[in-house]
Amino acid sequence: MAYSQLQKVEANVHIKASADQFHNVLCNRTHHIANIFPGKVQSVEIHKGEWGTEGSVISWNYLHEGKVCVAKEMVEGIDMKNNKMTFKVIEGDLLGHYKSFKFLLQVTPKEKGSVVNWVLEYEKQNDNTPDPYTLLELTVEMSKEIGAYLSQDHN
């Protein structure tokens, strides 16, 4: 049997927007991310289910390391009370490098704004597969953009 192991990379992003506001965009208004962060996210579309529901399937077209990539994700879990979400990648470019890939999101309210915590949980196809630090950077960048957008107050 092939050796495989779940690995993680993680980052925290401080934003001025509230945890509820940020979580609401990622949960219920995911398609707006393409408008907020058009430099890297070209489109976010729903394939199955409805925005903001567990089991719904979303596809992302995004730029990563200068290439146009696609990720189809299933919303695996939503915890409104704790502003948490889990996205499981079910199709797309990432699965060319990883056996499994998940994005875990938690937004924690702070006195001023909130902290967005991203955990990328993955299983490499082989030992030559790089850790997804550039993708983590992209999620950090996206979080900062969404945070800046939300704190400019256009609801």
Rank of each mutant, 00 (worst) to 15 (best):
G52S: 02
N35M: 13
L104P: 01
A71Y: 12
N83S: 08
G96A: 15
N24K: 13
E65C: 12
Q42P: 05
K88S: 14
H154P: 11
P130K: 05
H23D: 06
K102G: 00
S56T: 07
K81Q: 10
K99F: 08
P38F: 10
L138M: 04
S100Y: 12
T86L: 12
P109C: 09
V41C: 15
N117W: 00
D131H: 04
C27H: 06
N83V: 05
N35V: 10
E141C: 00
F37M: 07
T129C: 09
V57I: 15
L120V: 13
L63G: 07
E121Q: 13
Y98D: 02
E54F: 06
D131I: 01
Q152V: 05
F103I: 14
A19K: 04
M142S: 02
N128D: 15
N126L: 05
T129P: 01
L94W: 15
V41S: 08
V70C: 13
K110L: 11
E45F: 01
G39C: 02
G52F: 03
E137G: 07
K112Q: 09
F101K: 11
H23P: 02
Y3A: 06
G66I: 08
V25D: 10
L120H: 06
G92P: 14
Y133K: 10
L104E: 14
V68L: 13
L136C: 03
V75Y: 04
F22Q: 09
E91V: 08
H14K: 07
F22C: 07
N155L: 09
S100D: 15
W118K: 02
V68W: 00
I78H: 08
E65V: 11
V68A: 12
I58T: 11
V140N: 00
Y122D: 01
H31Y: 13
L95C: 02
I33G: 11
D127K: 14
Q7M: 13
A2F: 04
E10H: 06
S100H: 10
Q21Y: 01
S43F: 11
F101R: 10
D127P: 04
N117F: 00
K81F: 03
K144E: 01
A17N: 04
D153V: 09
S18C: 09
H47A: 08
N24T: 12
A148D: 06
K48W: 04
E111K: 12
V75C: 12
E73Q: 13
I78L: 15
K102L: 06
T139P: 00
E145A: 12
S56H: 10
K102A: 03
I146F: 01
K84T: 08
K48T: 09
Q7E: 15
V70L: 15
G52T: 05
D20R: 06
I15P: 01
I146M: 02
H32P: 02
Y62L: 15
Q5K: 06
C27L: 09
K67W: 06
T129K: 01
E145G: 00
N82V: 02
D79Q: 07
Y98E: 01
A148Y: 00
L120F: 08
M80A: 09
I15C: 01
D20I: 05
K48C: 07
L150W: 04
A19N: 03
K8E: 14
L26W: 13
F87I: 08
Q7G: 02
F103T: 14
S43I: 08
V13Q: 03
V116F: 03
G77T: 11
E73T: 10
L138V: 02
V75W: 04
S143D: 00
T86H: 05
L135K: 06
I46S: 05
